[in-house]
């Protein structure tokens, strides 16, 4: 990613080719589920919690990504609540937010800062 990143632990999640372009996959990290997004249109990678806080469904990795006034976002497939991929803030007016994780790419491998 393009912003400066500091993270204590970098977890090797998968290869870049494992993630569809402009889409997401779910990563298992210990007991956590992390949604990883390859926003190839912007040449950016994002990671968030996989659980949608609205109905507590493990589904964000299966959501569509896109932008809202240039802010990258993901829409939960269940009820189309949208969240900023940068800040985790809910963009559809609800009082909830999601956790985001830093991502870095090295030699075709995707690392998530946990």
């Amino acid at each position: 990613m393009m912003t400066e990143i500091t993270s204590a632990v970098w977890f090797l999640a998968c290869n870049t080719t494992d993630v569809p372009e402009n889409g997401g996959v779910c990563i298992k990290y210990k007991d956590e589920q992390i949604a990883l997004f390859n926003f190839s249109r912007r040449n950016e990678w994002y990671a968030t919690q996989n659980e949608c806080p609205h109905r507590k469904q493990m589904a964000l990795s299966r959501g569509m990504i896109g932008s809202n006034n240039n802010e990258p976002k993901v829409a939960c497939p269940f009820h189309k609540k949208t969240f900023s991929l940068q800040t985790g803030e809910c963009l559809s007016g609800d009082e909830c937010s999601i956790k985001t994780y830093p991502v870095k790419i090295e030699d075709g491998k995707v690392f998530i800062g946990v």
Binding site: E21, N22, F39, R41, R42, G63, M64, I65, G66, S67, N68, N70, P72, K73, A75, K80, T82
Partner: peptide
């Protein structure tokens, strides 16, 4: 979809225009 967006649209798309 990506080509439609590049040729006829702007930005990165979203859950309203993709389907």
């Amino acid at each position: 979809y990506d080509e439609v967006l590049s040729q006829l649209g702007t930005g990165d798309g979203c859950e309203l225009c993709k389907p």
